[in-house]
Structures are given as structure tokens and as C-alpha cells.
């Protein structure tokens, strides 16, 4: 275990339910992600990829084990601290874009900054525009989520994930809902951002082509990394 890892996970356990009904999803999982990593998370359906991403994203508490990010112990942190930590250090891209339907693209992108500062600042709007340009949507700034295509929505979601310049972006099957062409564009974008900005990505996927685009592949079998 190196001291300058972005994420260090040690003996992570996640069990749903109790007694006979218990489902043991993560069984002492160890994982380390260095800063600026570009990793694909592979594994059969039900192997616990989404569960792991939820725990790494501090959206779910593990049943046991250790988890530190940026040197912070995230197991013992309070709910409020975790909310704040997520906001500043972790970005999310999900299989579904989950954009706020009543907000336009720019408003969606700057949400993480606005919710942290309590208002939409000019600086945030400038960065939001820059990010939308970065994902190739500078002509869709005022469009609402319902007025965008699936691939465009996912690119807005990526811009939103990057808004607060997080050290880590967790992406759960980000191309799962897209056609091949859109998927390729999204993947290209992620690789580019990783290269240019040094943001670490952990991308769960079933698609070997996506995985090939990543620097390394993490395979999950039976609740552990192999």
C-alpha cells in the first residue's frame, strides 16, 4: 500500500440482509487507485460493481473494512462531512444521465458548485460554459434535458461530474444506454479529460471495447478483485 494513493480500500465487506437471507456481495475486497488512474471495472452481472462504486462514492456504508481517500478515513466520517466531501472530491456519471429535467444544460452542469456556495456565481457559469464547450455542447447551453439526445445528455452529465474539479470520477456503465457511436464519443471524451486534467476515472462496464480504452482493467469475481 503506497502512501500517495488516491483511494485505498482494505478488506471491504458488504452484506445485504441478515441471517439466512443475507447476500454477501463484497467479501474482503482490497483496491488501490493512484491519482490520475484510468481504470475499467469489469465483472459479471451481480458481481458487485455498482455496490463497490456506491461505497467508493460514499453513497453507501460498507459492512466492514477500511476506506480512505485523499488520506481521509471515510468510514468514520459523519453524513454531513461525507456530503461535503462528495461535493468537492468525487464526480458521478451514471448509466442514466439523471439530469434535473427542469434545468437547462448549463444549470445542470453548475449544480455541484451552486449547491456548495448557495448560489450560481458568475465564475461557476463561466466554468460551466467552458465544460460544455469541452464536451462539444457549446450550442446546447440553454437546452433542457428533454431537448437533448441520449449521448448529449450523458455528455452534460460528464461536464457536471467535472464541475468542482474532483480528483475521482466514478462512472457506472456510462455508455450502457448509448448506441455504439455515441458510446465511442463519450469514451473518447473521458480518456481525453483523464489525459489533460489528470482526473482519475473508475468506469464499470460490460463492454470490453470500453475497457480496452482504459489504462488498466480491474476484474471482480465473487466479491473480490482478482
Amino acid at each position: 500500500m503506497s502512501g500517495d494513493a488516491l483511494i485505498t480500500v482494505d478488506g471491504l465487506v458488504k452484506t445485504f440482509g441478515e441471517g439466512d437471507a443475507a447476500t454477501h456481495v463484497l467479501k474482503g475486497l482490497d483496491l488501490e487507485i493512484p491519482p490520475g488512474d484510468m481504470a475499467a471495472l469489469l465483472g459479471p452481472s451481480g458481481s458487485g460493481k455498482s455496490t463497490l462504486l456506491s461505497i467508493l462514492g460514499t453513497l453507501m456504508q460498507p459492512s466492514g473494512g477500511h476506506y480512505t481517500m485523499l488520506g481521509r478515513d471515510l468510514i468514520s466520517a459523519s453524513a454531513g462531512e461525507l456530503t461535503d466531501f462528495r461535493n468537492h472530491h468525487i464526480g458521478f456519471v451514471f448509466q442514466f444521465h439523471h439530469l434535473l429535467p427542469d434545468f437547462n444544460a448549463l444549470e445542470n452542469v453548475i449544480f455541484p458548485a451552486a449547491v456548495a456556495s448557495g448560489r450560481e456565481t458568475r465564475t461557476a457559469r463561466d466554468r460551466g460554459r467552458e465544460l460544455l464547450r469541452r464536451v462539444g455542447l457549446e450550442d446546447r447551453i440553454e437546452y433542457r434535458a428533454s431537448e437533448l439526445s441520449g449521448g448529449q445528455k450523458q455528455r452534460v452529465a460528464i461536464a457536471r461530474a467535472l464541475m468542482n474539479q474532483p480528483e475521482l470520477v466514478l462512472a457506472d456503465e456510462p455508455t450502457g444506454n448509448l448506441d455504439r457511436e455515441s458510446a465511442d464519443r463519450v469514451m473518447e471524451l473521458l480518456v481525453e479529460i483523464n489525459k489533460e486534467e489528470g482526473t482519475a476515472f473508475l468506469i464499470s462496464t460490460h463492454d470490453e471495447r470500453i475497457a480496452d480504452n482504459c489504462r488498466r482493467q480491474i476484474r471482480m469475481v465473487d466479491g473480490q478483485v482478482v
Binding site: G80, T83, D84, N87, F92, F111, V115
Partner: peptide
């Protein structure tokens, strides 16, 4: 849920 994930507090 997404707002909460993005750092909106309760």
C-alpha cells in the same frame, strides 16, 4: 437522489 449524490445536504 442525484442532488444528494452531487453534494446537496439533507
Amino acid at each position: 437522489g442525484i442532488m444528494r449524490a452531487m453534494g446537496a445536504s439533507q
